[in-house]
């Protein structure tokens, strides 16, 4: 049981890292980025190609993260512009349609150019024992990176003036403009950050299992579920929800079967909407 829970936490930290990039963009711009998972896959393929070209793994990973961040920034500066000018239901719908289109394009191009593409980062070393449970080195690395990213994000949003400016735009965009904060600048930075986080997810996930070219849809759906449960716009909420959902996933896979986990996770999201419509920590406070 202890091993199952610990596996769940490892999985959940990955979920949290995945969800946080989705939740920030939604909290800020009202855009549910359906291309999110594809941006991660794009980063994975960039890293894999770079490694195949002889670039050291760490440097290749950095290149992949930067490529994903640039993709996010490019999306914000081009296709998302008309979305921000809309409001209410139109805004959500236009955001969904445009990002879905981007997802199709990225997926199409990647499967056409590199149908068997996959990223697998092997971290050498003997399993490390944590609380008496042996964990693969790759899992430990992935968890440490996720925790470090969580800490960095919490410091950024909690203690820096720009981080607070981001939260202020989530809470009251007009109020933010009145104190001199440019929502456009904040959105561009957050879209780039979100893309970078998707790239980081690609790197950490490939440390535990190969990330294949068709993984995008699953990543997007998982990110969506994590952000709904955590509360849209909340960093701490995304990681909290990620860990909880990771444990739920791991436990249900162990006692019922792997086939059930997608349904259980979706059920958790539905239940959250019904019981706590704002999510665990919704509203931009975390």
């Amino acid at each position: 049981m202890k091993a199952v829970i610990l596996d769940g936490i490892v999985l959940g930290l990955g979920f949290g890292l995945l969800g946080v990039g989705m939740t920030l963009v939604y909290g800020l711009g009202g855009v549910l980025n359906l291309a999110y998972g594809e941006v991660a896959v794009l980063a994975a393929i960039v890293v894999a190609q770079a490694m195949a070209g002889g670039i050291p793994t760490a440097l290749a990973a950095v290149i992949g993260v930067l490529a994903a961040a640039s993709t996010g920034l490019l999306l914000d500066l081009t296709l998302m512009r008309p979305v921000y000018r809309q409001s209410g239901g139109n805004k959500v719908l236009l955001g969904l349609l445009l990002t879905l289109g981007v997802a199709f394009v990225i997926e199409g191009v990647l499967t056409w150019r590199d149908p068997l593409g996959a990223l697998s980062i092997n971290v050498a070393g003997k399993p490390i024992s944590i609380l008496g449970v042996p964990l693969a080195v790759g899992s430990v690395w992935a968890s440490v990176i996720a925790l470090a990213a969580a800490a960095a994000l919490l410091v950024f949003f909690g203690a820096t003036i720009f981080g607070r400016a981001v939260r202020s735009v989530i809470q009251d965009e007009l109020g933010a403009r009145l104190v001199g904060i440019s929502p456009a600048l904040v959105r561009a930075v957050i879209f780039a950050l979100s893309g970078g986080l998707a790239g980081l997810v690609a790197v950490t996930q490939s440390m535990t299992a190969p990330l294949t070219v068709n993984a995008g849809f699953n990543l997007t759906v998982t990110a969506l579920i994590v952000s709904v449960v955590g509360g849209l716009g909340s960093v701490a909420g995304a990681f909290l929800a990620g860990v909880l959902l990771g444990i739920v996933d791991s436990v249900s896979a162990y006692y019922i079967g792997r086939y059930i986990t997608s349904i259980v996770l979706l059920g958790a999201a539905v239940l959250t909407i019904l019981v706590w419509p704002r999510g665990l920590l919704g509203g931009g406070q975390g």
Partner: peptide, 25 residues
């Protein structure tokens, strides 16, 4: 500095953070 009638404070944030953001950037 324009203070609208509806104020547009950052309701979920503390008084301190509201004041801090007033000095932005």
């Amino acid at each position: 500095a324009y203070v609208p009638a509806e104020r547009h404070l950052f309701g979920g944030m503390t008084v301190k953070t509201n004041l801090t953001l007033g000095a932005y950037p």
